[in-house]
Design a protein around this nucleic acid. Structure first.
Lengths: 121, 121
DNA sequence: CTTGAATCTGACATCGATGGCAAGTTCTAC
DNA sequence: GTAGAACTTGCCATCGATGTCAGATTCAAG
């Protein structure tokens, strides 16, 4: 599939897809004319990338992380080295804190929403 | 307390504290000379603000939300109106999705970390 | 071929919270 | 009153992912 379809199917803009490639997060075959040609696996990969971005990881970390992931289709290709494991552990802790924060904030929102839905009292 | 101490106690920079004030997220008494003077409650408030920022809410929403919160010390002061409740509900759903994303990403990190800690096989 | 849609590259803009600096004022302790 | 720390305001810079635009090229269908 080409970039337009991939964008449609993942909900990620073409601009971002090209950016991901430039950041080394994904590759694409090229047609003789230079247009990107993606395999089916690209969809999952893009979604995974988006999730990691949303989790606050930067391009660089994601780029290091991706080849160590057990991909849905293929093999795990690589094992993380010590430095990467150390970095990822830090990220993991950050994510834990973020989750805790989100729970608290969600609770706050719920209280306010709840209070508004019970005007009496 | 003054801004330096508040910054130290909350881990938020003085720069950000002044920014919060400009955004209408908090107020401060002023000394005759114009220096900010904060009450004890400011510490909790700043931390709350930080959490909401971390949850992805923008200044504007936080500014609308804060007066509707049951503050630890004082009363809830206001009730959210329909528009705000609607906005907050949207934010709440976004936070839900974010939490789900974070769980998935954390799992990914765990798998990679785990795989690296078991070099054999 | 031709034409219009899709894609290419590259550059610049944006967003929002925060960092940093500069010049001036206030506070605190001596 | 004086010195130095702390504070004030205001402005410009930064970060990273994404938006957007322009001009050129390629693809697909007639």
């Amino acid at each position: 599939m080409r970039i337009g379809e991939l964008a449609r199917r993942t909900g990620v803009s073409e601009r971002s897809l090209r950016y991901y490639e430039k950041q080394g997060l994904m590759t694409a075959e090229r047609t003789p004319g230079g247009h990107r040609e993606y395999g089916e696996g690209a969809v999952d990969r893009v979604i995974r990338i988006q999730e990691l971005f949303a989790a606050g990881l930067c391009s660089e970390k994601i780029a290091q992380l991706l080849p160590c992931m057990r991909d849905s289709d293929g093999g795990p290709s690589r094992t993380a080295n010590g430095q990467l494991v150390s970095d990822l552990t830090v990220e993991r802790e950050r994510i834990d804190r973020m989750i805790a924060d989100l729970f608290r904030s969600r609770e706050v929102l719920d209280e306010v929403i709840e209070a508004a839905s019970v005007p009496a009292e």
